[in-house]
Nucleic acid binder design. Structure first.
Length: 600
RNA sequence: GGCGCUGUAGCUCAAUUGGUUAGAGUCCCGGACUGUCGAUCCGGAGGUUGCGGGUUCGAGUCCCGUCAGCGUCGCCA
């Protein structure tokens, strides 16, 4: 080793010792006759002193140092003079007096320095990720990530799970997203698909008798990005045999309790709260609600059906819904202009036709442009249903179930932040359970699987598969943390008759099912145990545990919204020779502009 | 693919209703300084306001197009 210690470990205990440190020049304070440098590495910062008492030569040498130079210093540890310790540093009680300096490497003037007060723009950070990763915040987040994964693995190891790696080059699986494809050189015209999840493989492992499997699995989905979505991401993939929903949920309950305790010092009460899907949609309009605050949805469709306001009345009579939320105390803060913003949001984003509102005045009366269409009794009824008090703002959407859910969910989410209805540092864990087996496809009679086609229906719903498939509930469960879906899983079908029936409902005939994943169907016939599992989104868990709102900050090398890597400039063109090997020809009009050539 | 926000010095930002030579801090370069820790002080350099077009006597500012980053809807079972 070139060093004897790190920059984070020297303390008052080491006074008098001689040591060697290596690191990056973090800040320079040059007084002419004495120079201080904070030397930084992954472990911390140590103040090193260059002065003429120890070695005049070295003081001159120190004059050459600039930001982010990599240096090696030999010297002696001594306590700092009285009153000059730095409480911000773990090493702040001591300083390192340099007797010998070696510049290991110089550094070009960097576009930004890790310690600068204002965080640089994200494009710059991504382009020079090696500089960005030197920032303390990034370091902390990636260290947290490492500890989270270790804790997950330790927990699983303690519960007899076996860690198995599954292929990255596979074939298209029955997930719903677009695949990333890899052309085959040997089988020209054929493609591997990168896994959207190791779903099939882990089920095969159950059939093979490896009754508790985990993997920290990289997954790929070629869909558009969001603040909490990357095209490649990491899951803790888990599968168990001889279990039902409660067993998997209970296992993850324990894991969350351990994670919260070890990483956040929080004591989670088990079992974690559970909400059915129907309840979540009815009360919060979403299957991953943020349960750190209330502002629940109130349904007034029955009241609307008899009122004098045409829009409400006709909506109710059409079998649609009139629902709303009470934004407590929001009235003084929400001008007409801000209400218009909310209105535009639900119109533009979800196709709602409008947003009705009532303001509860000081005298307790309800004010609204549409109040005149309601009788005194109806207004009083409205007020009591929403529990409206002076200063409250009621926001209502009259539309389909779907639009009212989406619109009110987004209003609730936004106003929860704007009205500071919860402590952002608070953590809330819950389960959403009993998802529907199926949802309607667009303008077709056909059903789509809400999860994947191997999801088992609840035992008590088996009869409904034939009679009323839409009401069938699945053995499916999502882990929700602070309003984010942190994971989801199901118990799988291990009975070929039920599987056949589900395929039928999905419009998959036996032939095409056999074609797409016959190997799994075959395997299921060779002694498949009852099994099920879950996948936890590790990037999101890290994001939530770190209190961040952006998944890119939890990933060492993330991609931009266009799935572009600004540092390596991937994706990029390849040699014609490579394409020839693969039997691929690219038509001229399909080649998009080279991002590098158009950026400046 | 749609909608929205942003784009000004290496970096972070400012620039009144469209109006003189586009400013500040920081970084960088030169100088001073033996106790700082966002060191301080003096001096200097640094700009085709993302790119292209238009309106105007005059555009960083308004309009159109385009590129990039971000947010969001669709999409992601």
């Amino acid at each position: 080793m070139l060093r004897t210690h790190t920059c984070g470990e020297l303390t008052i205990e080491n006074v008098g010792d001689t040591a060697t440190l290596c690191g990056w020049v973090d800040t320079i304070r040059d007084f002419g006759g004495v120079t201080f440098i904070d030397l930084r590495d992954r472990y911390g910062r140590t103040q090193v002193v260059f002065n003429p008492d120890s070695n005049p030569q070295v003081l001159t040498e120190a004059g050459k140092l600039k930001n982010e130079y990599v240096i090696k210093v030999v010297g002696q540890i001594r306590p700092r003079p009285d009153g000059q310790s730095n409480k911000k540093l773990a090493t702040g009680e001591i300083e390192f007096v340099v007797s010998d300096l070696e510049i290991l490497n110089e550094c070009k003037t960097p576009p930004f320095v890790p310690g600068q007060k204002d965080v640089p723009g994200e494009d710059l950070r991504l382009k020079h990720r090696y500089l960005d990763l030197r920032r303390e915040k990034m370091l902390q987040t990636l260290q947290l990530r490492s500890r989270i994964i270790k804790t997950m693995r330790d927990y699983c190891a303690d519960h007899d799970f076996i860690d198995i790696e599954t292929p990255i080059l596979g074939r298209s699986t029955p997930e719903g997203a677009r695949d990333y494809l890899v052309p085959s050189r040997v089988f020209k015209g054929k493609f591997y698909a990168l896994p959207q999840s190791p779903q099939i493989y882990k089920q095969i492992m159950m059939i093979a008798g490896y009754d508790r499997y985990i993997q920290v699995a990289r997954c790929f989905r070629d869909e558009d990005l969001r603040a909490d979505r990357q095209p490649e991401f990491t899951q803790l993939d888990l599968e168990m045999s001889f279990v039902d929903s409660d067993d998997v949920i209970g296992m993850i309950d324990g894991m969350m309790q351990r994670l919260a305790k070890e990483l956040l010092g929080l004591d989670l009460q088990l079992p974690l709260q559970r909400l059915t899907y129907d309840e979540a949609m009815t009360r919060f309009g979403h299957d991953a609600p943020d349960l750190r605050f209330g502002m629940e949805i109130v349904d007034i469709t029955d009241l609307a059906s008899t009122c004098g306001f045409g829009v409400f009345k006709s909506t109710a009579e059409a079998g649609k819904f009139v629902r709303g939320v009470n934004a407590k105390g929001a009235a003084p803060k929400y001008s007409r202009k801000r209400i218009d913003e909310l209105t535009n949001m639900v119109k533009d984003d979800f196709g709602a036709k409008g947003l009705a509102w009532f303001r509860c005045e000081e005298d307790g009366s309800l004010f609204s442009p549409i109040a005149k269409f309601f009788t005194e009794e109806e207004l009083a009824d409205l007020k009591s249903r929403f529990d409206a008090e002076p200063g409250d703002l009621l926001l209502l959407i009259a539309d389909t179930w779907d639009i009212s859910c989406k619109g009110l969910y987004s209003i609730r989410k936004r106003m929860g932040v704007e009205l500071e209805l919860y402590d952002p540092k608070e953590m809330h864990f819950s389960w959403i359970v009993e998802f529907p087996m199926f949802e309607r496809g667009d303008e077709t009679e056909r059903w789509n699987a809400m999860h994947h086609p191997f999801t088992a229906p609840r035992d008590q719903d088996l009869d409904q598969l034939d009679s009323d498939a839409g009401t069938t509930r699945a053995k499916a469960y999502d882990l929700v943390i602070n309003g984010y879906e942190a994971g989801g899983g199901t118990i799988r079908i291990h009975d070929s008759e039920i599987q056949k029936k589900v395929f039928g409902l999905l419009g998959l005939d036996e032939e095409s099912a056999q074609e797409r994943f016959g190997f799994l169907l075959d395997a299921l016939k060779y002694g498949a145990p009852p099994h099920g599992g879950i996948a936890l989104g590790i990037d999101r868990v890290v994001m939530l545990f770190a209190g961040l709102d952006n998944i890119r900050d939890c990933i060492a090398f993330p991609k931009t919204q266009k799935a572009y890597d600004m540092m390596t400039e991937a994706p990029n063109v390849v040699e014609d020779l490579q394409l020839n090997d693969l039997g691929i020809e690219i038509s001229e009009n399909e080649i998009s502009d080279d991002p590098e050539s158009i950026s400046e």
